[in-house]
């Protein structure tokens, strides 16, 4: 019989040290498309029509992207004749304000929320998460589960999953919130002690896209629970999930503001 302990020790450490150093494991993984507004041809609406989830609208002859509806299908990048829509590796899209996911030419500054920050700082060191699947396609679950694999090894950051909402600080919601999951989701949230936070995890939890409309589906958690972090992505990759968790804990800065991605 093999000695699994020996096998494990011999294999050594597989965990990345990211975000402190080392690889985030997402080499080559495409993120949300970038808009280079200078290249955009005025009046052209090819990107607007190419988007299957209506994430792009035209306002005053310029495209406006709502990244909260983007499922990273790259269609707009293929359709744009001017190269104004560009593929990118921008996936760390967790933000505190839903409005930060909408691309705008003028960067807005947000009001500081002192009280919320004080509460957040009380949880900065360790965090216990309860996940609820409110109707996802299971790609988000697969990525959240991956956080516990040896590469991402979430425990090294002091973050753990807990079976009971009674012990949870954070509710991670995936899926567009289908009708049978509405009350279940609320009951889980109500069972959590305060202070409690919510991450809308994945594009369909953020906005419902592309599962909104139709007779079943739902349009995300926006009107159901107070959301602390919005994280689009279809699915958000494990590094994006870690970024969003550390953003919640104020251990990493937000990368996106006014729909624009800061390097």
């Amino acid at each position: 019989m093999p000695l699994w302990t020996w096998t494990g020790l011999k294999a050594g450490k597989a965990a990345t040290r990211w975000p402190h150093s080392g690889s985030d494991g997402q080499q080559g993984v495409l993120g949300m498309p970038r808009l280079d507004i200078d290249k955009c041809r005025s009046g052209c609406d090819l990107c607007v029509n190419s988007c299957p989830t209506q994430a792009i609208h035209q306002i005053e002859a310029e495209p406006v992207i709502d990244y909260g509806r983007c499922i990273v299908c790259q269609r707009c990048v293929e359709e744009c004749p001017e190269g104004a829509m560009q593929s990118s590796y921008d996936w760390a899209f967790g933000v505190r304000q839903r409005s930060d996911l909408t691309w705008s030419s003028a960067l807005e500054s947000h009001e500081a929320e002192h009280l919320r920050k004080r509460i957040a700082s009380s949880q900065r060191r360790s965090l216990h998460i309860r996940h609820v699947d409110a109707g996802s396609c299971n790609a988000c679950e697969a990525e959240i589960s991956a956080l516990d694999n040896p590469f991402y090894n979430l425990h090294r950051l002091g973050i753990f999953f807990t079976p009971s909402p009674r012990f949870a600080d954070l509710l991670m919601v995936t899926g567009p919130v289908t009708a049978p999951m509405h009350d279940v989701l609320l009951a889980t949230w109500e069972a959590m002690p305060e202070p409690r936070s919510v991450i809308a995890t994945g594009t369909c939890a953020v906005s419902g896209a592309p599962m909104d409309g139709g007779y079943a589906g739902g349009s995300g958690v926006e009107k159901i629970l107070p959301v602390d972090i919005w994280l689009p992505g279809c699915p958000p990759n494990p590094a994006a999930l870690i970024h969003a968790l550390l953003l919640l804990l104020e251990r990493m800065p937000q990368r996106v503001s006014g729909g624009q991605y800061a390097e």
């Binding site: 080559g28 495409l30 299908c73 593929s87 697969a142």
Partner: peptide, 27 residues
């Protein structure tokens, strides 16, 4: 045994990401 299986899964997904741009082979 569980950790090894999940690590192998992760390695294939990282390979998929490098090859296709998507860990789930989408788009």
């Amino acid at each position: 045994g569980a950790a090894t299986g999940f690590l192998m899964e992760e390695r294939v997904k990282q390979l998929a990401g490098q090859l296709t741009g998507s860990r789930y082979l989408r788009s």
